[in-house]
């Protein structure tokens, strides 16, 4: 069975909104996220899987889930 087209639409709109909101080129959001991770990792021990950047219309949220065993 082929991929439902909704999945492609959602992926495209989510990426579009991030570049629109940052007014940047496609892919810049990923670079930003990577740089933010590097910056934070200078000051604390974080793991990539616990780190997430979310870009809304007015805020950039950094989600960090904290210490894990």
């Amino acid at each position: 069975m082929s991929v439902p087209s909704v999945r492609i639409a959602k992926e495209r709109i989510v990426n579009l909104l991030v570049t629109d909101r940052l007014q940047c080129a496609p892919g810049t959001a990923e670079d930003l996220s990577r740089d933010l991770f590097h910056t934070m990792s200078k000051y604390m021990e974080i793991r990539p899987e616990c780190f997430q950047v979310r870009i809304t219309r007015s805020d950039i949220h950094i989600k960090y889930t904290g210490e894990k065993y």
Partner: peptide
């Protein structure tokens, strides 16, 4: 649709 949602945002 992708285009309409983009403009709405």
């Amino acid at each position: 649709e992708v285009s309409a949602i983009r403009d709405a945002d």
